[in-house]
C-alpha cells in the first residue's frame, strides 16, 4: 500500500466532482463528461459552445489556483518518455471520443444513472489501464 493514500481528501474531492456534475444536470440537463465537453467544441453547434468554454475556463482557473497555492497538486512525479506521453495522449483523445466518454462521463455520470454501457466502458478502461500501468511499472522497475 502506498503511503500517499488519501482516503478522506479523495472522498471529499470526489464529492465536489459529484456536486459539479449534479449542478450541470439539474439546472441544464447536461452531462459533465470532460471528453464530451471538449469534443463538442470541435463540431460546434449554434448556442452550444459558450457553456463548454466557460466550463473549461473554470477547470483552468482551478488549475491555476492549485499551481499557485499548492504546486504539489499539479506536479508530475512519474517517469514517462515523451513518446509514451504523445502516444498516451493520442489514445486518450481518440479513445474517449470513439467510446463516447471518459472517467467523468462514463465513470461518474454513467454509473450514477446505472447505465450498462457506462459500466462496460468503465470495466474495460480500468482493466486495460491496469494491464498497461502494471506492465510499464514492471519494465521500469526491471530497468533500474
Amino acid at each position: 500500500m502506498s503511503p500517499e493514500f488519501t482516503p478522506v481528501l479523495s472522498t471529499v474531492g470526489g464529492a465536489l466532482i459529484g456536486l459539479s456534475a449534479s449542478a450541470l444536470l439539474l439546472f441544464e440537463s447536461r452531462i459533465a463528461g470532460i471528453s464530451g465537453i471538449v469534443g463538442g467544441l470541435f463540431t460546434p453547434l449554434k448556442g452550444d459552445t459558450a457553456w463548454r468554454v466557460a466550463f473549461l475556463a473554470g477547470l483552468a482557473l482551478a488549475g491555476l489556483g492549485g499551481w499557485w497555492f499548492a504546486p504539489q497538486t499539479v506536479a508530475v512525479t512519474i517517469d514517462r518518455s515523451p513518446w509514451m506521453l504523445i502516444a498516451g495522449g493520442l489514445m486518450v483523445g481518440v479513445g474517449t471520443r470513439l467510446g463516447s466518454g471518459c472517467t467523468s462521463g462514463h465513470g461518474v455520470c454513467g454509473l450514477s444513472r446505472r447505465s450498462t454501457r457506462s459500466l462496460a466502458s468503465v470495466i474495460t478502461f480500468m482493466a486495460v489501464g491496469a494491464i498497461v500501468a502494471v506492465t510499464v511499472g514492471q519494465l521500469y522497475r526491471g530497468a533500474r
Binding site: G88, L90, V92, V94, G95, G99, S100, H106, V132, V136
Partner: peptide
Amino acid sequence: GAVLFGAGWG
C-alpha cells in the same frame, strides 16, 4: 474506445 482510452490512461 474504452480499450484505447484505458491504454493511454495507463
